[in-house]
Nucleic acid binder design. Structure first.
Lengths: 237, 237
DNA sequence: CTTGCAGTCATACGTTCGTATGATTCTACC
DNA sequence: GGTAGAATCATACGAACGTATGACTGCAAG
């Protein structure tokens, strides 16, 4: 029940890591498909070909497993997001960064998580996290994503001058919704509307999202300007 | 266990209707907050001040309760959506309807469901329905919303000429995401980003969404035109 | 007053849940 | 090659789940 921290190194660690990873993979998929309450540890351990007790041994509890599932993906996404954001700034050469480029830096790392041509489970899980009723979840989410999100707000603030900070925060929520819903609903979307529209070409989907979100942001900017000038028409910029 | 269909009329019916409504209200809220699997019948019946057996008596099963919760709200929303859409067409006077007006007709009836200044539970529930793993759900969703959604796709098709049917379907998903995410995450959104941004002024929120979505749609239209003309700039139309 | 039921209630059944426990297996190191 | 300890395993526990059952209650009609 102890000594999970002290690692002697060697093959013994490898065996533990293997089931650890299998558990994380299975949990990621099942949490995404069925939600936290809907995915039982028995279903997860069975999918991972592991023993029922393995979850409590490796992660302490079901909640601990969920935190581990989330945390595992966050660092790579954050790192890649920041890398692409820095690239935006370099391309802008001191000036305001391009809106589309900032949005692309925001969404591309998440798309990169997909596996095998389909939508990655983590995206759907991340979408669920906004509505799962676990009390500690918002705090964790803020700790994991808060800083990077703030930097993207900064970038959008420069790319879209004239929008207040509060307004930008709202716009970012709309952007997130744009990205999240199609990926969260994912493969089942077509069923809901009785149409065959598969998520076959993910690059095209990402392009669509970015274009749409950029158009939405620019419309908000135009409105904010027009609103302040009281119907004076399009603001100079 | 039988004879729920034959109603003798009078006060006996009233008593049953009261608990029925209380159960629907409580279930709507708890399904929205905790999801289908996370909301137990014991929690629902307790919140409704009803007996545990009342759910199975009135709705047959937990799933039956969910279908009833959903169905109750759909007719008013659909009716109001169609009314506002017809108003759009009348205002357009035979010409293509206004994009913002169509979007407003789409989203306003949902906002109207809110109660007491907050976000109504049904909106969050409707958002959850896209990802809940119940097998029969997509079929129900298509049956309840499919026809009206198709009519809105028609209207958008006229309002945004040049976009293919498949492309429009995708754009509508982005629009739905724009509307859904802020409402689904709802009161907890501020916690996630450590910022105080309350859903205080719902009319302003709706305006923001509509403006954003309209901007996104117009950007998609511009891109489709430019894409077909291979960088020729804005298409004539 | 009595009879018929829609509706309510307490209660119980079988299942599944998350978690805990103790024995057992496997592997790295002396 | 024997031993410590990381890891796995079968198993059990109490709680909570959805559902079913039968007695009970209250009201309307005969």
């Amino acid at each position: 029940m102890t000594a999970r921290t002290r690692l002697p190194g060697g093959a013994a660690e490898t065996r533990g890591r293997a089931t650890r990873t299998a558990l994380l993979d299975a949990a990621e998929q099942l949490f995404a498909e069925r939600g936290y309450a809907g995915a039982s540890l028995r279903a997860i351990t069975e999918a991972a070909a592991a023993n029922l007790g393995a979850v409590n041994y490796h992660f302490g509890s079901k909640e601990g497993l969920l935190w581990a599932v989330i945390s595992r993906r966050v660092s790579p996404v954050n790192r890649e997001r920041l890398r692409l954001l820095a690239e935006c700034r370099r391309a802008a050469d001191g000036g305001p960064p391009d809106v589309e480029a900032v949005l692309r830096a925001f969404v591309t790392p998440v798309f990169a998580l997909r596996a095998g041509g389909g939508v990655n489970s983590f995206v759907r899980l991340a979408g669920r996290m906004y509505s799962e009723p676990l009390p500690q979840l918002p705090k964790l989410h803020a700790r994991l994503f808060g800083e990077v999100t703030g930097l993207f707000l900064d970038a959008l603030s420069e790319a879209l001058p004239g929008l207040s900070r509060k307004e930008l925060w709202w716009q970012l929520q709309l952007v997130i919704g744009t990205f999240l819903h199609p990926l969260l609903a994912g493969p089942r979307l077509a069923e809901f509307t009785e149409r065959m529209c598969l998520l076959d070409d993910m690059d095209a989907v990402a392009d669509r999202m970015i274009r749409f979100a950029a158009g939405g942001l620019r419309a908000a900017q135009a409105r904010e300007g027009a609103g302040r000038a009281r119907g004076d028409g399009v603001r100079k910029r």
